[in-house]
């Protein structure tokens, strides 16, 4: 499975209420379940007029299929090449 970052352009995204986010989450979950292939929705971040999502599946086409089924835009789909954080500093070879 590969990780992907998806950018979704949605005007007024930051004004979505908790109820609306709950609705969206439900729709997304239903879409994931309907795919019938391994798929994980990891997390999403709302910022400005965009929603950034982190998903895991085998290919970008499946990401787009999920988006179609949920009725979400998928403006940019990028494969995550690497992930790192503060802990990565310790891995530097001495």
């Amino acid at each position: 499975m590969t990780r992907f970052i998806i950018e979704r352009e949605i005007e007024g995204a930051s004004s979505l209420t908790p109820e609306q986010l709950a609705d969206i989450a439900r729709t997304s979950n239903q879409a994931v379940d309907s795919l019938g292939v391994p798929y994980t929705w990891v997390n999403s971040y709302v910022a400005g007029d965009k929603i950034y999502c982190v998903h895991e599946t085998d290919d970008a086409e499946t990401i787009r299929e999920h988006a179609r089924r949920g009725g979400f835009p998928a403006n940019v789909v990028s494969e995550v090449a690497n992930e790192f954080g503060p802990h990565t500093a310790e891995l530097k070879s001495a």
């Binding site: 239903q30 019938g36 179609r68």
Partner: peptide
């Protein structure tokens, strides 16, 4: 496309 989850049509199909 948005009907596919409700209709139970998965991606492999």
């Amino acid at each position: 496309d948005r009907l596919l989850p409700a209709l139970g049509v998965d991606l492999p199909t």
